[in-house]
Every structure is written in structure tokens, then in C-alpha cells.
Design a protein around this nucleic acid. Structure first.
Length: 757
DNA sequence: TAAGAAACTTAGAATTCTTACC
DNA sequence: GGTAAGAATTCTAAGTTTCTTA
């Protein structure tokens, strides 16, 4: 657990225990009538009756420490202050330039309703529905427009190549800033998806995700390889030969012993419990105390293996690479509506120990090996059904084209379903992404009205409406997540609707500000959200009312949950949900900050700095943090060392320069004059390098615990960035790497420099 | 209608690959 | 050429929303 991102096990405990305690109360009083879960109880007590206030009281618990006193590093303060700055003001509306007509064709592919599968057979008559592939292929070669059943060989070898280079006319590529392929890295077409400008096609019928889907099924984790005899496990100082089943699980743990997880009691307890389940009776009898287990040789063995891999010859490495590529070629792609598309995660998750984040009560449990018999395959009826590994069969094969997944299985830790789905650059994902940003833009058009409405609702006579209105204000102003209710057996984290009294503090006055709300809670992934925000008086007063007669463990918004909230939002704008506000505010912030920060006279690095700062403002708004990188302080020290050395060098250079000038003054020879010039140049160079290092240092420090990637990938309408690049002549490669350019190909093609979110 | 299941997006960590620097 | 730093990629947990079922 390094750095700022303490995942607060302690604070967490306080939450948890409070939860437990009131849950226990609940059990004693009301339970048994209904099924079981605390959540059930929770939500029913929350919204069902008019006496919910009383119920709240009853639900509340003796709260020892309300939330923990968190330990702040100085830089984390910095982050917070900065966040406060960025977050304070609600985004001011900017006039929209684009009107409905500017919205490209695919924008009309909006919301889809879940419908009965529309099987390929249903549309076998080629002429009616405009199947995208057909459009493409008809353009290129009428004969290939016929739906084609591909056999395995056909599928696995090379995809039907698109014939026309026309399709590749992505506007940004007309700029003279091509990404030159690296030497020795010739592109293997079998390792690429075909370019499919799906946004120029017409969409499928509502609810229909594909017409044809063919794939090879998932790639299973390699079988367990028993340890060589010389690698031993010890119990109580004596070597013990484990059964293969027990050994495999021991290896999961042994490989992790350097990790912080193995110092956690919950992790260790869960591990031991599950480990014992796979032991034979003799092992069960003997191995009872984890503290007496010695996994060191196992750990060393895998470290050594990793070293060996690193030290392998070039040829050896190449061989492995080839083998991997072969797997990707076979399993990494599917054919969907006659286009070859990359799959996102075609490998079945290997067995191991569950790495739940934060105070997850199930961390350390054994994640079981998934077998073909656990896997459901989803593909076209008329496609070759993927073959299960020899001697096995699939759990089920279905043909449901109202969903986008290729394979699914149920994992044993939480009982949730896992899916194999397409890569982010695929049509299926891209289209969804596009629609997401369109919905956010739609919100922009009516956000003023919505804001006016919720402000009005702060005065409502009805508590539920006031709560809803204040929650909306938080979601809008602070970009909080919706905050669903959670199961008991997960980490105790919250979002807007599930915030508890203990998570906020009210200050009539704090420093020089009035009506300050201090938030302190653990959000998604147990990342701490800490913020002090000056709010409007009415919000403040409402919060005081919401908190009256409640205990720290009670819900702040006891008359609200995400379903109620989203239902209301839906009534305000079609497609509006809580998370749209996050997308909307993030994209708006980027656009605003770019306008504010970009200087068109700057050089490219200068503009990039502006871009990154705008990106950073969004990351702060959305509270995207990361653990301080490993060796961060060491790296900073090294950098400081370099800077110090460079400073000395600058000093020396200055001295040399002065000396050369003195020499020249004494004797004005050509040599001396040249020497002066030379020394001047050296000085300039040294100064420039010093400056560069100093900027690097600032940058590194500022980015210490902020993650930029998440917002870039998920929240920022890529057309804003593309337009910015075009407007300010910054090559797109500067802001998006290859993968990102693939994901945002639609935006790169669509957006012109005057695009407005 | 509400709870639970299913489907899909968002998230940071871990791992691997590439580049920069000595 | 070796190493460290940084970037890219992979991995999968943890959310939100939507759909289904009782």
C-alpha cells in the first residue's frame, strides 16, 4: 500500500463495523419475514413508508470514529487544494455551435431497446435491411455482397481484404505526420482487424447487435505445471511434498509473498480456508497454521524463472513472441458482420487468489480454474461453432444477437458473470461510445433547465424531492458517481446516493468561505474522495436537515437511491442517467480548459503542456488517482541529482564563458572570439537542459498521484481533442497513441477544427 | 414493483514493451 | 550494449444501468 492512495483499511473497519452492528440489530428485529439481504432491508426501510425517519433512527448505530482521520501526505494536500480550485465552479455553459444537422448519420443510431434476437435467417432476403457489410462490399465488389459462410480455415487465415483503399481515407492521415512503422516490425495482416468505417454505415435494427458472429471460443489458461523436486515447501521447518492440487494453490500464494496482500489478516484467513479445501486429508491434518508455512523457495523459483526469461537470447524471445502471436491470430479475432474485429479479452482468467481492492472481505479467496464446461458460447446459428478443447464440451451454445458478448462464465468469488467481448476499437464498442458522447452533448442543451429545476426543488415541501435535488447538485457540481447500494460482502465504498452522515462534515465557516461541506469517503476501488466545497446556503441548510437525528452510519439521503434518481433523470431527458453528468462535465471541462490554456503562438511542446493540464483538470474533477509509482522517491532523487549536476555544469559554463570573455578582452584574437562564442553556446545549452529537467521534475511531481488515462479513455469526447489538434496544428499522435487512435478512429474522421462539444 | 441477474463501462494495478541515456 | 524510465498493453475488479423475474 504505497503513497497517497492508502486504501484505508482502518477507516474502513469503522464503517464496516458500524454497518455490521446495525445489520445485526436489523436481524434481531425485523428479519426472517423477507429473504435475507441487508440491502433488501436497507432499501425498504429507506423508501417504503412515511415513517422512515424512525426507521432511520433504528438503523443507526453507535459510531465509534466517524470516518477515520486520514493521514495526508503534503502533496496530497496539494492535489486536493487544486482539485478544490477546479471543482468549485459549476461548468459555465457555452453556446453550442453544432446543430442537429451536423450530427452524422450514426448519431441516429441512438438508444436501442432490447428486442427479440433478429437472427440472420430472418433477414436472409438480401434486399431489405441495409446490412452494413453489404453496403461496404457492394461498393467494392458486388459479388462479395452475398453473405458468406466462412469455414474454419478461411476464418483463421487471412480475412477477406477490403479491396478499396478509399475506405482508409481518414482525414487526419492526410496530414504529413505519419506514424512510420518501426523497423523490423512489419505488419502482419493476420494480427490486425480490418478497417471498418462503421460510422459511415447505417445502423442495424434496434436491439440487434450483429447479424453474423463467428469466433474460436476463448483461450484457456495453461494447465498447472508441478514444481520441480528441488523447489520445496516447508511446514514448521520441515519440507512437505504437497499434492498437485494443494501445491498449485500454494504456488498462487508463494508467488505473492512480497505483496502487501499477504500481510493482511483477511487475505491470509481466506486463503488458508480455501487452500485447506483443496488439500487431502493428510495435508489438512498437518497444515493448520499459515505462520508455519514457508513459501520462500517457491517465491525464489519464480523470481529466478522471471530473471531467466529476461535474460533469454534474442532468438528465444522471438520464438515466444511468435508463439503468442499465433495464439492471437487464432483466438484474438472474430468475424462480425463480415468484418474481422479484435477481441478485447479472449483469454479465460487464470485461477489464482482473489485480489479484491480496499477492505474487500473476500480477498485471498481461491479463484477457481474455469473449464470449458463452465463456458457459454454465443455466436451465429450459421457460423461454425467453436470447438471445445479435446475431451470437453461447452456449458451451452447460444445464438443471441441482442448482446455483444462472445463467451461468458460465472466466477466463483462473487457469482458474477464474466464476458469475452470485443476490443475498444471495434464497431460495437465504438458505436456505443459515440452514443455516450452524443447523450452528454444533449445534456448540454438542457442542463440549464435541469439546474434551474433542481435549485427550485431545494425548496420543496417533500423531503424526497429535496434530497433528490441536493444529490443532483452534487452529481452535477462534483461529478460524483451515482452510488448504488452494495452487498455486504464487498468493500465498503459509496457514491452520491449511498453517502452516509459520517462521510460529510458541515462548516458554517471554514477559512474564508461560508457554508463549506467537507467530503471524506471511499469511492470506487476504495479510492478516497476528499474535498471541501463551498455550497449554496440552501444546500447547506438542507444537509443540516437531512442529518438531523441521524447517526454517523445512517444514509444521508434516506429517501433516495439510484433507481429513483435515474427514473427522475430519465423524465427530464431521454437517456439521462447519473453517469451522463460525469461525461458531460468532464468533456466540458476539457473544452473550457483548452480554450483557456492554449496559446496559438506556443510551440508544440508548449501546446502539449496546455493539453495535459486540461486533461489533468478533468482527472482531478473525476478524482482519478493512482498509487505513487514504485521507486518514486528514488526516481525523484535521481532527477534531483541530475538537476544538481546540471546546475553545477551551468555554473562551470558561466565561469568558462566569463573567463573566455576576459581572455578576449585581454587579447582580441579570432581564436579568443571564437572561444567566447563556443562558451556562450555551451552555456545556453546547459541552461536549456537544466530548464528541461526542472520542468520534468515539476511535471513528475504534479502527476505523482494523478491518473490521466482514465478520463482520456472514458470521459473526454475525443472530437474535442481531435478538433484541438487540427486547430492548433498539433499532430494527433502527440495526444493519442496507436491504440487510442484506433479506438477513436470515428472521431478522428469526423471532427473538424470547429467542433464544439 | 422491487430484487436480482445480466450486460456493459470504468478503473487502477501489474506486466510487458520501447525509448532514452550512459 | 546495458539499464532505468516511461509508455503501452493487459488484466480483471468494481462500478452503473438495463433487463428479467417473482
Amino acid at each position: 500500500m504505497n503513497g497517497y492512495k492508502e486504501r484505508h483499511h482502518k477507516s474502513h473497519k469503522s464503517h464496516k463495523s458500524s454497518k455490521h452492528s446495525h445489520k445485526d440489530k436489523d436481524r434481531h428485529s425485523s428479519k426472517h419475514s423477507s429473504s435475507s439481504s441487508k440491502d433488501k432491508h436497507r432499501s425498504s426501510s429507506k423508501h417504503s413508508s412515511s415513517s422512515s425517519k424512525d426507521k432511520d433512527k433504528h438503523r443507526s448505530s453507535k459510531h465509534h470514529s466517524s470516518s477515520s482521520k486520514h493521514r495526508h501526505s503534503s502533496s496530497s494536500h496539494k492535489v486536493k487544494e487544486e482539485r478544490a480550485e477546479v471543482k468549485q465552479e459549476p461548468v459555465s455553459p457555452i453556446k453550442m455551435k453544432m446543430d442537429e444537422d451536423d450530427i452524422p448519420l450514426s448519431a441516429r443510431m441512438v438508444k436501442t431497446e432490447k428486442k427479440r434476437p433478429c437472427y440472420a435467417e430472418d433477414d436472409d432476403d438480401e434486399d431489405d435491411a441495409p446490412l452494413s457489410v453489404r453496403v461496404d462490399q457492394a461498393k467494392k465488389s458486388p459479388s462479395s455482397a452475398k453473405k458468406r459462410k466462412m469455414d474454419d480455415d478461411d476464418f483463421m487465415s487471412s480475412p477477406k481484404k477490403k479491396k478499396t483503399p478509399l475506405a482508409k481515407k481518414v482525414k487526419s492521415e492526410t496530414k504529413p505526420t505519419p506514424t512510420t512503422p518501426k523497423k523490423g516490425k512489419e505488419k502482419d495482416p493476420a494480427l490486425q482487424e480490418d478497417k471498418w468505417e462503421w460510422w459511415k454505415d447505417e445502423g442495424l435494427a434496434e436491439g440487434c447487435k450483429w447479424r453474423y458472429l463467428q469466433h474460436m471460443g476463448p483461450y484457456f489458461a495453461p494447465e498447472y505445471e508441478p514444481l520441480p523436486d528441488h523447489v520445496r515447501f516447508y511446514y514448521d521447518g520441515k519440507p512437505v511434498k504437497l499434492s498437485p492440487e494443494a501445491e498449485e494453490v500454494a504456488v498462487f500464494y508463494g508467488r505473492m509473498i512480497d505483496h502487501d496482500y499477504t500481510t493482511q489478516e483477511v487475505f491470509n484467513d481466506n486463503f488458508l480456508k480455501d487452500w485447506r479445501k483443496v488439500m487431502n486429508s493428510k495435508e489438512k491434518e498437518l497444515l493448520r497454521d499459515l505462520r508455519k508455512c514457508n513459501f520462500n523457495e517457491i517465491n525464489d523459483y519464480f523470481k529466478l524463472k522471471s530473471e531467466e526469461r529476461k535474460a533469454m537470447s534474442k532468438e528465444g524471445k522471438l520464438e515466444i513472441k511468435k508463439q503468442n502471436e499465433e495464439i492471437v491470430k487464432q483466438y484474438g479475432f472474430c468475424v462480425i458482420d463480415h468484418h474481422r474485429q479484435k477481441i478485447g479479452n479472449f483469454r479465460i482468467e487464470p485461477p489464482g487468489l482473489f485480489r479484491g481492492r480496499g477492505d474487500h472481505p473476500k480477498r485471498g479467496m481461491l479463484k477457481k480454474r474455469i473449464m470449458p464446461e463452465d463456458v457459454i458460447i454465443n455466436c451465429s446459428k450459421d457460423s461454425p461453432i467453436p470447438k471445445p478443447p479435446p475431451g470437453h464440451k461447452w456449458k451451452e451454445v447460444r445464438h443471441d444477437n441482442t448482446v455483444t458478448w462472445l463467451c461468458s462464465w460465472t466466477e466463483n468469488i462473487q457469482g458474477s458473470i464474466k464476458y469475452v467481448m470485443l476490443n475498444a476499437a471495434s464497431k460495437l464498442k465504438g458505436e456505443k461510445d459515440f452514443n455516450k458522447y452524443e447523450t452528454a452533448r444533449k445534456l448540454y442543451k438542457c442542463v440549464d433547465k435541469i439546474r434551474a429545476q433542481y435549485r427550485e426543488d431545494w425548496k420543496s415541501k417533500e423531503m424526497r424531492i429535496r434530497q433528490r435535488a441536493v444529490a443532483m447538485y452534487f452529481i452535477d457540481k462534483l461529478a460524483l458517481r451515482a452510488g448504488n447500494e452494495k452487498d455486504e460482502d464487498t468493500a465498503d465504498t459509496v457514491g452520491c446516493c449511498s453517502i452516509r452522515v459520517e462521510h460529510i462534515k458541515l462548516h458554517e465557516k471554514l477559512d474564508d468561505k461560508e457554508y463549506v461541506v467537507e467530503f471524506d469517503f471511499l469511492g470506487k476501488d476504495s479510492i478516497r474522495y476528499y474535498n471541501r466545497v463551498a455550497v449554496e446556503k440552501r444546500v447547506f441548510k438542507n444537509l443540516q436537515i437531512f442529518m438531523e437525528n441521524k447517526s454517523p452510519g445512517d444514509d444521508l439521503f434516506d429517501r433516495l437511491n439510484t433507481a429513483i434518481l435515474n427514473k427522475h433523470l430519465q423524465s427530464l431527458m431521454e437517456g439521462l442517467t447519473a453517469k451522463v453528468f460525469r461525461t458531460f462535465n468532464a468533456s466540458r471541462t476539457l473544452q473550457e480548459q483548452l480554450k483557456l490554456l492554449t496559446d496559438e503562438d506556443d510551440n508544440v511542446p508548449g501546446k502539449m503542456l496546455s493539453y495535459n493540464r486540461a486533461n489533468r483538470a478533468v482527472a482531478i474533477l473525476c478524482n482519478h488517482q493512482r498509487a505513487v509509482p514504485k521507486n518514486f522517491s528514488q526516481q525523484m532523487e535521481n532527477l534531483q541529482g541530475k538537476i544538481d549536476a546540471k546546475r553545477d555544469a551551468v555554473k562551470d559554463a558561466k565561469r568558462d564563458y566569463k573567463a573566455s570573455k576576459a581572455d578576449y578582452k585581454a587579447s582580441r584574437s579570432i581564436t579568443n572570439q571564437k572561444n567566447v562564442e563556443k562558451k556562450k553556446k555551451a552555456l545556453d545549452r546547459a541552461q536549456e537542459m537544466l530548464h528541461k529537467l526542472e520542468v520534468q521534475q515539476t511535471d513528475k511531481d504534479e502527476n505523482k498521484e494523478i491518473a490521466l488515462g482514465t478520463s482520456k479513455l472514458n470521459y473526454l469526447d475525443p472530437r474535442i481533442s481531435v478538433a484541438w489538434c487540427k486547430k492548433f496544428d498539433v499532430p494527433i499522435e502527440k495526444i493519442y497513441n496507436k491504440t487510442q487512435r484506433e479506438k477513436f478512429a470515428w472521431a478522428i474522421d469526423m471532427a473538424e477544427e470547429d467542433y464544439e462539444f
